[in-house]
Design a protein around this nucleic acid. Structure first.
Lengths: 207, 207
DNA sequence: ACACTTAGGTAGTGCTCACTCGCTAAGTTG
DNA sequence: CAACTTAGCGAGTGAGCACTACCTAAGTGT
């Protein structure tokens, strides 16, 4: 067994970490309204008392989970594409497929559940705002980086908005569309169209 | 006042209609978990007893509402584009803007709430399936019609999947993205890219 | 008109929710 | 070691949920 003596800080951080990952798990499998404090504690192997010692309300825990996931998603994104740049059609398609994979990830479902819920809960939306802004800003910045100076800044935002909206919609439609084929076809089609567009803008060499 | 004597059929159909529109309203403003039987009855100006006389469970009412909305959305879609066909770039962009408007409509939020909820409620998903299939099938069929024989059938599905996913994602991100400009930019960008693609496929005359 | 069926209202019922309270256990400080 | 602070537990608590039982009112067939 591990050393039986841990500092308060260690104890605290471990249980908070367990609550955060339990919340991610619950949101992914049970959805927003199924993510009750009872369910989270069961998943984390903790009591309700433990949860409410560290988070005053359920919403506070949900917001903390959103921030936790945002940090991890951006870090994963950066690590995954480190040292590459979007300068040929093949890389473009690979990048898009990778992004689609990330969008479908368990952690990204946290965002989907919370954003949908905040559509009818203004208090949650307000509490989520800082994390949401940081998240989007970092994604745009990272994309701009990978395009370098080959693509003017005012072309990056619409392009990334298009891609992000498409990916969000794809995840959203996942329970409905049972054939993976049409999903992958759509991803490839978008990759082709983007590549053509970038060639047309002179940001990409023709194949 | 209206005639004080109505047939049972009239009474029945009016209250069912009021329950359906009340459910649409509740889903749009309060979300899935806020759409309680209490809230629906308050919105409809009816008692809980009236609701449960016509629908055995809350889920049964939600599914009936989904079917009701599906019929109306398809009908509106058809009526809106009756007599037109997608054969020049300008019409394409207009059509896409109209579709974006429809996607943002109050009634379409019914679908979003229910589809997201069914992501973590297999019973709801099963109950929703017939309506979902009909809805998607009719949308693809209608799109195929407007393209006529200028676009091969196996190009219609990926293209429409791309468009539908993008629009769903746009609606999804609506609470988050506060600037309408970037949204509209993305719609126009997609329209341009689709037009270029269709010209390339010979389905559209160049401008 | 009279028996019968259907529509709609009212007052519960058991259950689960987010959250509280008072306790013990563990760690910290002098 | 003694006094104190922080972590974690678990039995409540009131509110709100889907749904039920039973009632009256309205409409229907003969």
């Amino acid at each position: 067994m591990p050393q039986p003596r841990r500092t308060q800080k260690e104890r605290r951080e471990e249980t908070i970490g367990r609550l955060l990952t339990a919340t991610v798990e619950c949101l992914a499998t049970k959805g927003y309204s199924g993510t009750t404090t009872t369910a989270i504690c069961a998943e984390a192997g903790l009591s309700q008392g433990a949860l409410f010692r560290h988070f005053a309300t359920r919403q506070e825990l949900l917001v903390a989970t959103a921030e936790y996931v945002a940090h991890r998603q951006v870090a994963t994104f950066r690590a995954r594409f480190a040292g590459r740049s979007f300068d040929d059609a093949e890389t473009m398609e690979q990048a898009l497929v990778e992004m689609a994979r990330l969008a479908r990830s368990r952690e990204n479902r946290t965002w989907h559940e919370l954003v949908v819920a905040s559509g009818s809960d203004p208090a949650l939306l307000t509490a989520l705002h800082p994390a949401l802004d940081t998240f989007r800003h970092e994604i745009f910045a990272t994309a701009g980086q990978f395009f370098g100076d080959r693509l003017p800044a005012d072309e990056v935002v619409p392009l990334m908005t298009l891609v992000l909206n498409f990916l969000d919609g794809m995840v959203f439609a996942q329970p409905v569309v049972r054939t993976r084929a049409s999903r992958d076809d759509a991803v490839r089609l978008l990759a082709t169209m983007i590549a053509d567009r970038l060639v047309h803008l002179g940001a990409l060499a023709p194949r």
